[in-house]
Amino acid sequence: MPHQTISNSGQPAAIVVENVVKRYGAFAALNDINLEVGKGEKIVLCGPSGSGKSTLIRCINHIERHDGGRIVVDGVELTGRIADINSVRCEVGMVFQSFNLFPHLTVAENCMLAPMKVRGISRSEARDRALSLLRKVRIQDQADKYPAQLSGGQQQRVAIARALCMQPKIMLFDEPTSALDPEMVKEVLETMVGLARDGMTMVCVTHEMGFAREVADRVVFMDRGSIVEEAAPETFFQAPRTERARSFLNQIIH
């Protein structure tokens, strides 16, 4: 499906979310969400617990199926019957709060599995690629260890390298630093900042305001399944327009 949606800027958008609804039973986890992410754009998604942030990015990656509206990722419609969801997922990397590394595979094998089995590249090429990306997240000397032998921060950097090995066009992060001890948050954020500098399109669910200030083009604030406010980070943090955003910011600063 070479269907392309052109964004306001005239560039084809990386992600288009239109009137998306997601229900769990009678409960609407996402309620008429509209969001457009341009190529190379960096979005920080924040909001109180249960506001639907994870649900939204899981719908973008089609781990959850949306019930209404449409989602277009990298020009491919993710609505209704999808011919080949896996080809879309190849272009979208995802990093989870709980790392979700494969514990029975070494760090390098974690990074090599999908490129070999999905992209069909050879083992040696996959290993070269894995090592070079592990070097990029500064963890190449751990390549032959198993995930359980690494610290949380190291595991999360491996998870980032693993996603990058698929050479995705878009990266989604779901609270990548929330499960980490404070001293490890920095190393993961630095890795993400590096990625942003390389021009990756990123959607990050995070409450790290320093990170948002440094890299985000836009901060999107969600509450109770809706997008309540969208603004440049400076504007959002200095002068939030809505009461809900103000009280949320007060809570995370306190």
């Binding site: 080809s87 997922r89 190849c90 990397g93 979700n100 494969f102 089995k117 999905v118 996603a163």
Partner: peptide, 17 residues
Amino acid sequence: PKGQIEAASALGLGSYA
């Protein structure tokens, strides 16, 4: 853990793989 299957799908692995 459910996350294992989610991580595999997110990497584009099909159900056989």
